[in-house]
Amino acid sequence: MIGDPRSLVTAQIELRDVGKRYETVSGPVLAVEQVSLKVRRQEFLTLLGPSGCGKSTLLGMIGGLVAPDAGQVLIDGEPSTGPNPRKVAMVFQDPGLFPWRTALDNVGFGLELQGVGGARRREVALGLLEPMGLRGFERKYPRELSGGMRQRVAIARALALDTPILLMDEPFGALDEQTRLLMGEWLVGIRRRTQKTIVFVTHSLQEAIALSDRIAVMTSRPGRIKDLFEVPLPYPRDLNSPEVTDLRAKLWDQIREESLRAMEGAP
């Protein structure tokens, strides 16, 4: 990972003093304020924080779905002006599969938008679905799939775009604990194979520690980056090892305060 000298020099994603406010009925809310962050090439960075801390807003900015009111988002050194499906793919907490499309056609959606032909789309989709344990489910509609399967199809749909950057907004948040752990292990495998730069949003300490190279702890409203932690541990990680226990305690210290603030300040 550090073998490529460019990865040390150029950040793949750079946020420069970005800010975002939303107008609500009870007045403007500052969701994100003065956030600066660099994500290295092929890094797995997690944004960790309590609900409503602007994690998703920040991720939306990187994905080009949310325009910052202040500051700039740079992808590979170039200012981002909107969704860029050649470079950035997104996965959301709600898989958002198109219910009228089979698993196969859902995975092919992004390529269809790019004008890729049917045979090629099929080939790509089958190649992605099979190693995800979805062989035999290609022709199923989303309602016929379990929650974990749906999210895997959604991830396959994002991977089909073959972008260097993958953004994941609490992708396993709606799944049960066991499925969640398995999906985490599985994501580590995907990451090893595809070498993508991944920005992952979660409020789970456990998930952040199991998956990330680096964890950015965010403050609650307005969202800022409070602290950054490196996690220099090999995969698969033993979540009961002394290093992990120690890191979890440190993270918890940081996040406890913010969660309390978020609870008190919750409207």
Partner: peptide
């Protein structure tokens, strides 16, 4: 039409035409 599906399509580069034809129309069919 589920707003989230539109967000998903936009994140994959769908413009207004594609959103209408590939998301809104099938969703309301």
């Amino acid at each position: 039409v589920d707003r989230h599906l539109i967000t998903v399509a936009v994140s994959m580069g769908a413009g207004p035409g594609a959103i209408f034809l590939k998301v809104a129309l099938p969703a309301m069919s």
